[in-house]
Simulated scan of single mutants.
Amino acid sequence: MGAQTFITYAEGADVDAAFRATVEQAEYEYGHAGRSGTIAEKNGYVVINGGPLSPGDAAALANTLIDGADRRIDDKWEPAGAIAVLGGIRTLSGIPVPPRSGGYPDLKTAALAAVDGLLGDDEIVTKSHLDRYSLRRGSIEIDQSATAIITTTGSAKLTGWLFFGRANS
């Protein structure tokens, strides 16, 4: 019986919900039989750093703690480490898209209208999906109940958690 190192990012500000979702995803991908060497083997977590770090700084800290065999995360039977991350991937769901007389020239413009005023200065839209729209004479017509799902990066807000440690394999 060995141990394997894992590092995985989970979107969401709530550490409990992010941990549960990540464990469930790992169980789905690797099964429930145990010895996967993933976060699926962990029953809990310990928050390592109280303040959010950038994705790069969080990964560097996680690697330093792993390489240094930090007692909080080095045992395959103990909790995973958890570091708060800002500027990582963030998904905004169910954002209303405002109707516009004459429609929008394209889907990207409509998506940006939906998040107008919701994004930070350095936040970048990386992906968007709109529902309830139609193409009309070179424009996008938005239904009154249209919503958008927007994925961003670079937010100055807490966007997720980096979980890491050693797991039974």
Results as ranks from 00 to 15, higher is better:
Ala156Arg: 02
Leu86Arg: 01
Ile48Phe: 03
Asp143Leu: 11
Ala26Ile: 14
Ala33Gln: 07
Ile48Tyr: 00
Val15Met: 04
Ala69Asn: 08
Pro105Asp: 10
Tyr9Asp: 02
Gly117Pro: 14
Ser139Thr: 12
Gly2Met: 13
His129Glu: 14
Ser101Val: 10
Trp77His: 13
Phe6Asp: 01
Ala111Lys: 01
Thr5Ile: 15
Ala110Arg: 01
Ala113Pro: 15
Pro99Val: 13
Asp106Gln: 05
Leu118Ala: 03
Ser128His: 11
Gly34Pro: 08
Pro55Phe: 13
Ala40Gly: 05
Thr38Asp: 02
Ser169Gln: 15
Thr64Pro: 13
Thr109His: 04
Tyr45Cys: 15
Arg90Phe: 04
Lys42Ala: 15
Leu112Ile: 10
Arg136Gly: 14
Ser139Glu: 09
Asp106Phe: 08
Thr38His: 06
Val47Gln: 01
Val15Asn: 00
Gly138Glu: 08
Ile150Ala: 06
His129Lys: 11
Ala59Ile: 11
Ala80Tyr: 00
Thr109Ile: 11
Arg71His: 13
Ser169Lys: 14
Gln25Met: 15
Asp74Asn: 12
Thr8Arg: 06
Thr159Met: 06
Lys76Gly: 10
Phe164Asn: 03
Thr151His: 06
Leu61Cys: 07
Trp77Pro: 10
Asn63Lys: 10
Gln4His: 14
Lys42Phe: 14
Gly68Lys: 00
Leu86Ala: 08
Gly44Ile: 11
Glu78Ser: 13
Asp121Thr: 11
